[in-house]
Amino acid sequence: MKYSYYPGCTLKNKAQDLDAYARVSAKALGFELEEIENWQCCGGVYPLGSDEIATKLSSVRALNDAKEKGQDLITLCSACHHVIKRVNDDMKNVDDIRNRANNYLQLDEPYAGETKVLHYLEVLRDVVGFDKLKEKVVNPLTGRKIGAYYGCLLLRPGKILQFDNPENPKILEDFIKAIGAEPVIYGYRNECCGGYVSLKEKEMAKNMCDNIVANAKDMGAEMLITACPLCMYNLNKSTDSELPVVYFTELLAEALGVKEEVAGK
């Protein structure tokens, strides 16, 4: 199976690990990530204003590119996923945005939300299947107590993202089980890490992450996993630096025994 892959800006720079481990793991699991040519930055946050069109166009271009190839579009970074899925929903369901975006882009055939947008985790759950993943694990992470950190971008608004139960998600917990570790459920796993506020209001974001890390530790987590480079950055700035935060793809690669295939590791 071949997917159109949208890596996004951070995965090309600060979060190269997230990307590299995902690629080698995909190969081990039998699907292929074909990077969209000339993809443009999604903007990092979804433009909420109903009159914002230009800021949504980069997402539409990527979506249309996948449509022309007849592929589903995979994202890995939570922010890209959030933005592209919501823009896709606009293109499908909001007449005004669809019309104006298409008028602007002048594509061969108007784009109307045809592409299916999947997060890498959704591919693991819905296409590969966690049972199958479990079978392919050669290096189970037995005994590790891992807290999944979802944040906001993957889950909300639940009606549009349709990713998991926004108040009690389990996809990352199921993933943790599949790679042989023990998931630790804690209430703050879908609370915000501070997001973009951490640029100007460092103290504020730190407080929020302190709450998250404290709750995760209290419930017994020895490590946190995330799918978002910004979440990772913010969580690493919390006062309590004992709790390591890693990308879920790193553990995936480790469990599949392909971690060493990533250069320099």
Binding site: G187, Y188, N215, M219, G220
Partner: peptide
């Protein structure tokens, strides 16, 4: 807005 279970059995 939210109820958060804790390890000491109390609910935040």
């Amino acid at each position: 807005g939210k109820v958060i279970p804790q390890s000491n059995g109390k609910l935040l």
